[in-house]
Simulated assay, not measured.
Amino acid sequence: MNTEELVKAFYTEKQNFLKEYLSKNPDTEVGQLIKSLNLNDEQNAIMEKVMNNTLTDVFYSILLGLDGCASIGGIQEMYELKDENGNQLSGEIEGYAYEYFHESNK
């Protein structure tokens, strides 16, 4: 795995959460709670934006925190991330995270 693949995996997880939470037959508690609101189409569109932006903020913040570009719990430091083969995964996370979470829908 390389750094871009790590970021892409986080982005894929975000997209999977969003899809599950907003599905018509959700398996998660969050999805069930959203469904229980019985939102109309306009409200569903707003909920989708709220959830998308929330998940983007959370995943993006975690990635930047791991890269040392933002704090995690008020502590800002760079972490050394490696895959199981010893390949370095930190140091370039910020650029890929911005690309995946803010520039495009890959």
Rank of each mutant, 00 (worst) to 15 (best):
L33P: 11
Q76S: 12
D67F: 00
Y100G: 02
N38E: 14
Y100V: 03
L22R: 11
L63G: 02
G86V: 11
E94H: 09
V30Q: 02
L6S: 00
V50A: 05
L22C: 12
T28M: 02
L63H: 04
F10G: 00
V58A: 03
G68S: 01
V58E: 04
K35R: 10
Y96P: 08
N38Q: 12
L89K: 06
E80A: 07
P26R: 01
Y100P: 07
T3Q: 05
I72Y: 01
A70K: 10
A9L: 08
S61I: 00
N25I: 10
E103K: 15
F101I: 01
T54D: 07
G91H: 02
N53T: 14
E84P: 05
S104D: 10
K82I: 11
G95A: 14
E77W: 05
I72R: 00
I93T: 05
F101E: 01
K8Y: 04
Q88P: 15
Y98E: 09
L89C: 08
T28H: 03
S104Q: 14
N38H: 12
Q15G: 10
K106S: 12
S71V: 07
D41M: 14
Y79D: 01
N38V: 11
E92P: 03
K24T: 14
G68I: 03
E13M: 09
A97W: 03
F101N: 06
D57N: 11
P26C: 01
A45G: 14
G73H: 08
K35L: 12
D57E: 11
G65F: 00
N52H: 11
G95F: 14
N25K: 13
G86C: 04
C69M: 10
K35Y: 11
N38C: 10
I75A: 05
N16D: 13
Q76M: 09
T28A: 05
Y21N: 07
F10W: 04
L6V: 07
V7S: 03
L22V: 14
M1V: 15
L81F: 02
Y79K: 08
I62R: 02
S71Q: 08
Q15Y: 04
G74Y: 09
D41C: 12
C69E: 11
A97S: 02
K82N: 09
A97D: 04
N105F: 12
N85M: 09
K24N: 13
S71N: 11
K49D: 15
I34E: 10
L64D: 03
P26L: 00
F59I: 00
K19N: 11
S104Y: 13
S71D: 12
S90H: 05
E13Y: 04
T3F: 03
C69I: 06
S71A: 06
G31L: 00
K24H: 13
D83Y: 05
G86L: 04
A70I: 07
D57Q: 11
I46Y: 03
G65L: 02
Q32N: 10
E48V: 07
M1A: 05
T54F: 07
A9Q: 04
N85R: 12
I34R: 07
